[in-house]
């Protein structure tokens, strides 16, 4: 079985997604690399996540499908910009790797990670969730179809159990 990150890449490719907006993230590392290597895609690195919401709105105006890759902490940065998506009924696909939940070590990731889905839902973003690799391909395809057929915003939350908790040095964890 191929890695789940490749399942996401295949789903994006099949859907004809062209612009990939991303903020560097360990969970998305492989996917980002594959998108950067793909001459049919334009992978655009952002300095903060809300830029991606606006960027993909512009992409859609010009006829390009897009996807936004981020970590759960970045969802908080997007809140006001999501009013653009909602008001204009732009389709939006967010792929969110989760922190602050399964096996988290860093206290600072917890406040946003524990409330990511609630924040997104309050902003009108439909959430799908994967905690195991098997359903990833189908979930991403289904969520993208929903976004593009109904001009809706969707987020696929990729659980920390799926990604694997970030490992720190033992001495570091004890502090």
């Amino acid at each position: 079985m191929q890695p789940w990150q490749d399942d996401i890449y295949d789903a994006l490719t099949e859907a004809g997604v062209r612009q990939i907006a991303f903020v560097p993230d360990a969970g998305h590392k492989r996917l980002i690399e594959r998108c950067l290597e793909d001459p049919k895609m334009r992978a655009i690195s952002l300095t903060t996540e809300e830029e991606g919401i606006a960027l993909l709105g512009g992409a859609w105006l010009g006829g390009d499908k897009g996807a936004l890759l981020m970590q759960s902490s970045g969802v908080g940065n997007c809140i006001n910009m999501l009013s653009l998506t909602k008001t204009c009924q732009f389709p939006l696909v967010m792929l969110v790797t989760m922190r602050g939940e399964w096996g988290e070590f860093n206290t600072w990731q917890v406040p946003m990670g524990r409330t990511t889905q609630e924040h997104l839902e309050l902003c009108g973003v439909a959430c799908y969730r994967c905690d195991e690799p098997e359903p990833v391909a189908d979930t991403v395809r289904t969520a993208m179809r929903f976004a593009y057929y109904t001009n809706s915003a969707v987020a696929i939350l990729l659980g920390q159990r799926l990604i694997g908790a970030k490992i720190f040095e033992e001495g570091e964890a004890a502090r």
């Binding site: 655009i44 512009g58 105006l61």
Partner: peptide
């Protein structure tokens, strides 16, 4: 013309996505 009435701070990014698409 695409007139923003909100999304403050997003105009340049929106222009970039549009410029890449067109």
């Amino acid at each position: 013309n695409f007139y923003l009435w909100g999304a403050m701070g997003g105009a340049a990014s929106m222009g970039l996505g549009l410029a890449v698409a067109q």
